[in-house]
Design a binder for these strands. Structure first.
Lengths: 226, 226
DNA sequence: CGCGGCTTTGATGTTCATCAAGTAAAGTGG
DNA sequence: CCACTTTACTTGATGAACATCAAAGCCGCG
């Protein structure tokens, strides 16, 4: 029950305006796959063969450092391209990807993408734009985090989930306290401590994984500089 | 006394294998400019009109944070593309660039680049690769720095200058202690303190701006972890 | 020659990591 | 399904790493 790319409601604008022939290539190459919580989609070091597009779900992009330690680079959500970061610069992935929430992924052969780049200049330009935007944002996030103190980082990450991922002032944290720490360079203990502080200060309500933001403005201020 | 791109000995491999017509476009559009120490090439926020290529010299890529505070993102050297980071994702620069060492820059109209992307798929692919590599390395550097303690960061930056920029175990630091701090997220005082430690431990010789690495291996170990 | 920015060292304070210890929750195998 | 093990969560106490403050010498530049 595979959708035809031309008619796909999840389709990224990246694939708008292709020729009939190019859509044909896409449909021929394209596969779809479902992944469950905790599954690894690929590991750092594996050869890149495909171009991956996340239709639905939530993923974690990370690196393994030493033993039992992970550095989380970012969270990928619906309509994100995955592995695009290394797809053109390396032959092997530089980060690993695992599933946070059940995900639907479109898989397109890299050779097909290469062929479309060759035949379609607008596609190439749009891809350049997309890639640049992703990289910009990742770097921006890192620079931003490294400037903030722990309270600022914690506020920042709560806002990220509320605004960018769930678009709601109330949501369930999809990751553990430990993983939050790995994402914003903090120890687990401090993530917990500061979340508790925010609760005591009545900036958020928090019960297990569930978070409700009570004072958006104060949170934004703490994130900005607190 | 402008060189023709086809014959340019500084030419990046990015421009290899263009057609006669495409070289024609390049030569028509291309300008060259010299900049002296301390000059600002462009500021964060300015509209992007050109594609810049550094033939010779050394530049500093940075962001202004608050008042009198800068975050240095990286150092650009010969054969680097400048502003490529924002060129495709934004209409305005997101970082500023200033000159550390006298520089020679090639200036090509963005429209010309766009036209070549349209007409030449290989060029598009190579550009995608180049852009990805630059971004990868920047992000990698940031992640790396954030994992290290201050001694590790200081060792890392000395090695970066020695290996990537000057390719020599003896060189003059092109930037101030303060700027080193802005590059690797440290206070000026701590940069100085740790450089002094390294001297006392006979890992480096240091006299003003001049640095000589005495124990490359120990420095590498400290950078790696310690 | 004097002002402002860079460099250096020492003293002090704050922030955050680490250690420890206990409870709760979630897998796992019999 | 229950006992068991592991992993996540939480709080407090302690110490190390780093920022901040202060003061003085140096250097380049108008």
């Amino acid at each position: 029950m595979s959708t035809i790319c031309e008619d796909c409601i999840y389709r990224s604008y990246l694939f708008n305006g292709l020729s009939q022939e190019e859509y044909g290539l896409l449909n021929l190459s394209k596969k779809e796959a479902s992944y469950g919580k905790g599954e690894i989609i690929y590991r750092e070091g594996e050869t890149i063969k495909n171009f991956l597009y996340l239709k639905e779900g939530l993923l974690k992009v990370f690196k393994t450092i030493g033993k039992n330690k992970e550095q989380i680079i970012g969270i990928a959500g619906p309509r994100d391209f995955i592995g695009l970061l290394s797809a053109f610069s390396k032959s092997r992935y530089i980060y690993s990807i695992s599933v946070i929430e059940p995900s639907e992924i479109c898989i397109i052969d890299m050779k097909t993408i290469q062929r479309i780049i060759q035949s379609n200049g607008s596609f190439a330009t749009t891809l350049l734009t997309k890639l640049s935007q992703m990289h910009d944002q990742l770097l921006e996030t890192r620079l931003s985090i490294s400037q903030k103190n722990l309270r600022g980082r914690t506020a920042y990450i709560i806002l990220m989930f509320a605004v960018e991922i769930y678009n709601s002032h109330r949501f369930d944290l999809p990751i553990s306290r430990k993983e939050i720490g790995e994402l914003i360079d903090m120890r687990t203990e401090n993530v917990i401590r500061i979340l508790s502080e925010f609760r005591k200060d009545r900036i958020i309500k928090i019960e297990g994984k569930n978070i409700e933001i009570l004072e958006m403005n104060r949170l934004a201020q703490i994130s900005e500089f607190g």
